[in-house]
Computed example of a mutant assay.
Amino acid sequence: MIREDELRDNLQKVRERIQTACVAAGRPEDAVTLVAITKTFPVSDVHALAALGVREVGENREQELRVKAPECPEVVWHFVGQLQSNKARSVVRHAQVVHSVDRSSLVSALSRAAVDEGRVLRCLLQVSLASFGSAEAATGRSRGGVAPADVPALAAEVAAADGLELGGLMAVAPLGSDPDQAFAGLESVASRLRSEHAGADWISAGMSGDLEAAIRHGATHVRLGRALLGTRPPLG
């Protein structure tokens, strides 16, 4: 099977999963946007996915984003990985959305870069869900993010920053957690955020193994790599 056929088949299965999950949750079938995570996959896969109608693509690493984005202007680029402040300018130059804003210093760096580049960057706050009954809370291991109690203050900083637009929240289900419990916690944080910032209505949650749980709890964007592109090649 050639690569384009493989991607087409995977995309059909993924779209069916998303649609089925939306219907089961009593949501419109088109309520959730797919973000294809192409970490370590070649630019040719991005072009192939775009030809199949995928218009939102995400990268975890700045090094890959800055190579792929100029070659694939036909898609909206999302940066979804942990971001060092010294890489903010490069990410602002190439991405339209950043999902992993988790501290004041990063807000400042992104704002300065966005103003200098003459762009408006949509920002999602990455929320740590370790407090929502997960193994991470007991072991001290964490997938990163701001504590739920600190979301309002950081959201206010983003909303007030030049060149930035507060878009909503992002989270990763903690290791060893019940994804329904974790994403229910995220849903409650998102509801409180919307009460103060009505336009911050994105919830980026759910990956290949737990997208159904995320959609049950209001995810508007799911970030899929393995289910869509297959086994990830090793990092170069």
Rank of each mutant, 00 (worst) to 15 (best):
Q96T: 10
V97M: 08
V97S: 04
V97Q: 02
V97F: 10
V98E: 06
V98G: 10
V98N: 09
H99V: 08
H99R: 14
H99N: 09
S100V: 02
S100D: 03
V101N: 06
V101W: 00
V101M: 07
D102C: 01
D102M: 00
R103T: 03
S104H: 04
S105Y: 00
L106I: 04
L106G: 03
V107L: 11
V107S: 02
S108Y: 04
S108W: 04
S108V: 15
A109L: 11
A109P: 09
A109D: 12
A109N: 12
A109S: 15
L110V: 05
L110R: 05
S111K: 05
S111D: 10
R112F: 07
R112A: 14
A113T: 03
A113E: 02
A113P: 10
V115G: 12
D116M: 07
E117C: 14
E117Y: 14
R119V: 15
R119D: 12
V120G: 08
V120L: 13
L121H: 04
L121M: 15
L121N: 05
R122W: 09
C123F: 09
C123L: 12
L124K: 01
L125I: 15
L125C: 09
L125G: 02
Q126W: 02
V127G: 05
V127L: 13
S128N: 15
S128Y: 08
S128M: 08
S128G: 11
S128C: 07
L129C: 13
L129H: 13
L129F: 10
A130T: 03
A130D: 13
A130F: 01
S131H: 03
S131M: 07
S131G: 15
S131I: 02
S131Q: 11
S131F: 00
F132C: 13
G133K: 11
G133R: 13
S134C: 12
A135Y: 02
E136V: 07
A137S: 14
A137T: 08
A138M: 12
A138D: 10
T139E: 06
T139P: 05
T139D: 06
T139K: 06
T139V: 07
G140M: 06
G140H: 04
G140S: 03
R141V: 10
R141N: 06
S142T: 13
S142E: 02
R143S: 09
G145L: 05
G145W: 05
G145A: 10
G145V: 03
G145I: 08
G145D: 05
G145T: 03
V146R: 01
V146T: 08
A147K: 06
A147T: 03
P148Y: 14
P148Q: 11
P148V: 13
P148E: 07
P148M: 12
A149T: 15
A149N: 14
D150Y: 00
V151H: 04
P152W: 06
P152C: 10
A153V: 14
L154P: 00
A155Y: 00
A156E: 15
A156Y: 04
A156N: 06
A156K: 10
A156V: 02
A156I: 02
E157L: 09
E157Y: 02
V158L: 03
V158Q: 00
V158F: 01
